[in-house]
Write a protein that binds this DNA or RNA. Sequence first.
DNA 1: TGTATAATTAGATAGCTATCTAATTATACA
DNA 2: TGTATAATTAGATAGCTATCTAATTATACA
Lengths: 200, 200
Amino acid sequence: MKATEEEIEALVDFLKVLADRNRLRILGMLTEREHSVKEIAASLNIKEPSASWHLQQLKGLGLVEIRAEGTNRFYRLRQEGIHSLLKDLLQRAEAEVIEDPNNSEFERKTLASFIKKGKLVEIPARRPKLLVVLKFLSERFRVGEFYPEAQVNETLKEFHPDCATLRRDLVDFRFMARKNNVYWRIEPDSTPENALETSP
Amino acid sequence: MKATEEEIEALVDFLKVLADRNRLRILGMLTEREHSVKEIAASLNIKEPSASWHLQQLKGLGLVEIRAEGTNRFYRLRQEGIHSLLKDLLQRAEAEVIEDPNNSEFERKTLASFIKKGKLVEIPARRPKLLVVLKFLSERFRVGEFYPEAQVNETLKEFHPDCATLRRDLVDFRFMARKNNVYWRIEPDSTPENALETSP
DNA sequence: TGTATAATTAGATAGCTATCTAATTATACA
DNA sequence: TGTATAATTAGATAGCTATCTAATTATACA
């Protein structure tokens, strides 16, 4: 991706406005129906000037528009597209970071539940789930490269403190091979013989 | 959309990390290849501790991972999915806010160039583009409702200070009708007779 | 074992922003 | 015309965060 400086500035402006708990809640409220400033302030438990300020931020991005009625000013979402924008963001925030498009549904769910914010929360006890996690971990290494044990440990420790168990499992379940304290990743379809041929 | 409080918190955390010029630039750099902390600091023209701090923020979201090599630590994107995530966000930030899925390509482009951040940057001189903009503006009013002139002006002023010209054009090009200083939107397929029948 | 390089951690700070209260503006209505 | 209600604007401030320098940690290599 080649983003120009201008694009980055525009995106930062956009994200900065969105990256606020109360403004997201306002957008959430407005997906249902229009609301006056007073209503919004009451719902968020903030004073009216604060609500007014947030709404002006959102208006600056063109996300909301105003309808005046007496002394009230009803704010509403500018377009339904925003609806899906928010929904998408929510889903992506949780999932996209972790998902691999090649993964099956089972693999996807397993990884989603065992890997949170880049950490392995627990080494799965159940064999099928363990295999999914080991496959995922093995993909942190490149096929064709050779890794000293210390480096394997360091990489695994990023995910879980018990790198020794993970390292042993990776070898036992044939995701990685080992010789003279040097490790390498086994390609899914490679045979032990092939792997040995390329060992250091 | 019904977002739980937890979902909102997760999304805010995610957006807060992304809503930073330097972190976006780092992600941009990492879409091309892995980089050391030193390289990133040099590119962004900040000191190494600052670069390190940004990378830790990104790591906290699981967006990047580390490969150690000697005293260097090379950071790389965690997955290609992020690539498309960023690209999407960029496009959306620009376009989605404004776009209407029903619009033709021409309408989409015209609106994208004339309406920036919810403001009409200029009243188009060319007839076809003017019509697109007028259609868009007319959609700010509900069919079946009647609007006093002051309210029409206020709504139009949100887009451009010269509300008088816009109001006149809306009537001249038959997007809206007017009687006794009250305005209403004409449905695309309604005839002048129909419109008069429902006038107040 | 000592020196150099890279990175991180600790601690300080400038600048930004979400919030508040008080004042002002705008509208409705008696 | 005066009063009440809603919203915005003005001005102040607490709290957060991106940044820096200095100190520490980790690794490579002579």
